[in-house]
Design a binder for these strands. Structure first.
Length: 268
DNA sequence: ACACTAACCTGCAAGC
DNA sequence: TGCTTGCAGGTTAGTG
């Protein structure tokens, strides 16, 4: 469910309900996530006010008065604002009740997500590359980092040290828009093509944010509404179907155990 | 340093 | 109908 546009959509969906509100209570029903939830989380954060929300890579940060909670949605996580009496669903692992009566629920069937409290910087954020929609990300960076690298270009752009927030969906789409085969060696691609690729990564992420993200199975924003970008997907999830540009057959391969769909005619 | 694999976990769809 | 298999939006830890 969550790549960068989905996390951004989630942030925008929940921020008005919880920013400036005091945390009245927080309850953890399942603490066994990607990393264990701090058993003292409730006493650590209850009574603190949420100053603001922010996003770094696919992490969502809730800044409180004395620290921050770092939330990741993993593969299947979601955050929703619900009415106080809304029935609990299976896999609703964490619930946070705010001073204004809003209730935030963290739902994550596969439990690859996390919810970490820290009074200082979060270690998870210390080694990350630049944000894709920032000035620090461009074709020169891709070109320089990739010299003499044999890794395929798709896993290269999905590596968080290269640039953050580019997951399987948007990596596939950006490579298609750029006419680059996902299995080409990263080290053999020219500066000019990397400049185009960087632009297409930014374009595809920005477009997905505008459309509220991609809903594949059950992604919903903070208010329970789906995203619409899946209607725009040209290659992701379309192996064996026809190319939107040349009507040829789309091919599906595995790269780093992630399925990768591309058009052998349009992408070289 | 780099390239690649396995692992974490549940749900769902396809195949037999 | 029911069982088995494989696959899914991410990231880290471990191997060679």
């Amino acid at each position: 469910m969550p790549e960068l546009p989905e996390v951004e959509t989630t942030l925008r969906g929940i921020e008005s309900a919880i920013t400036g509100q005091v945390i009245r209570s927080i309850r953890v029903r399942q603490s066994s996530l990607r990393w264990p939830v701090n058993p003292n989380l409730a006493q650590l954060v209850e009574g603190q006010t949420v100053i603001r929300l922010s996003r770094r890579a696919k992490y969502l940060l809730m800044h409180l008065e004395h620290g921050s909670m770092l939330v990741h949605l993993g593969m299947s996580g979601s955050l929703r604002i619900v009415q106080p009496n809304t029935e609990l669903r299976k896999h609703d692992h964490i619930e946070m009740c705010m001073g204004n009566g809003s209730v935030l629920r963290f739902h994550d069937p596969r439990r690859f997500g996390c919810w970490l409290w820290s009074e200082g910087p979060h270690q998870q954020l210390s080694q990350l590359g630049p944000e894709p929609l920032s000035e620090d990300f461009n074709g020169h960076r891709l070109y320089q980092l990739s010299r003499r690298r044999k890794v395929a270009v798709k896993p290269f752009i999905m590596d968080n040290k290269t640039v953050v927030g580019v997951g399987n969906i948007y990596a596939s789409e950006a490579l298609f828009r750029s006419g680059i085969r996902p299995d080409r060696s990263a080290g053999n691609i020219s500066l000019q093509r990397y400049t185009e690729l960087a632009g297409h990564i930014q374009e595809v992420l920005a477009a997905a944010i505008l459309q509220g993200g991609t809903t594949l199975r059950d992604f919903v924003n903070g208010n329970g509404e789906p995203g619409y970008f899946q209607q725009t997907l040209a290659v992701y999830g379309r192996g064996g179907e026809t190319c939107v540009a040349c009507a040829g057959l789309l091919k599906e391969i595995k790269l780093g155990q992630r399925s990768s769909v591309f058009c052998p005619r349009c992408q070289r």
